[in-house]
Amino acid sequence: MSVEQTDQNVGVGAETYGGVRTEQLWRVRLKLLWNSLRSSWAIFSENPIGMIGLVIIFIFGLMALSHPILMATVWDAATYDPIVGFDYTIDSHPSAPSAAHLLGTDPIGRDVLSQLLYSTSSEFGLGIVAALVTVTIGTSIGAVAAFYGGVIDSVLMRLADLVIMIPSLPLLIVLGAFFELNLLMLAFVIGILSGFGGVTVIIKSQALTIKVKPFIEAARVAGGSDFHIIFTHIVPNLLPLAFLYMMFTVTTAIFSEAVLSFFGLMNIRMSWGIMINLAQSEGYLLRGFEFWWLLFPASIAITLLCAAFYLVGRALDEVVNPRLRKR
């Protein structure tokens, strides 16, 4: 890749620094970012597993977008609202799929397809917030622990050990019982748990290998402060790995939400987990295929979206670790 060339010559000696037309730095950086994204994409796109994951995520994205559009155009709010809707034209609920309700209605008369589509965007939001929290905590704590070592490292790592030791699902259940978590709270709790646990440990070990590179010493000789070295030299080199663990956190977050909702421990009105929870509480869960539309749409959605982020993560692993790459 080559950067735009200026047509003017540079002064010959160090005495004549003037005369060079400098480019707008932000434009150059944008271009470089674009180039690096493009080359990473070239590697990623060769991986069928990653592409399958990406296609699934893309479809779910379309589903999330379609709900408000459908509500505004085709679907009448009173009948199709995912939370308070009710179809008076049908005698008994749950009703099997029909032309009006492609995935049928739930035990209290609401459209299952509408619920499924409506929940998609909040699942995405949950996953992304949890992942961002994870990465922010994991990289900063990992980098700081690796950089300073000694007491700071020991304290942070023992804390991380503690978080790893506590089984996160039971903890979430206990927390849910006390606080009635909403989605944002859940995202933060999951983000903190996975960020301050395994991800910190992995990122720290990576940070240790970067910390001893000569370019860190070079930055120090240049006069760089600790802050400068951590955030312009160590953290950028951790980001690819952090990004990878972001994908895995999304999977954890969506899955945890489903479990908590299933137990009715979430303070939210609609989600895939709640759809299954309702099927269970109304006694339709263990009746095999008879009421399949109450169970399968939500559970398949959970499975597919979790799997999709996991697959993307696996493919990103190859972009991040060239050693895994086939020639």
Binding site: V3, Q5, T6, G13, V20, T22
Partner: peptide
Amino acid sequence: TLTERQERVAALLNECGLTPPEQFMYRF
């Protein structure tokens, strides 16, 4: 300033035999 730094880097890359400096400045 940023411009001064860019000019100085370009001049020094030139001195160090990395010519033309614009070809090298924004590479990795």
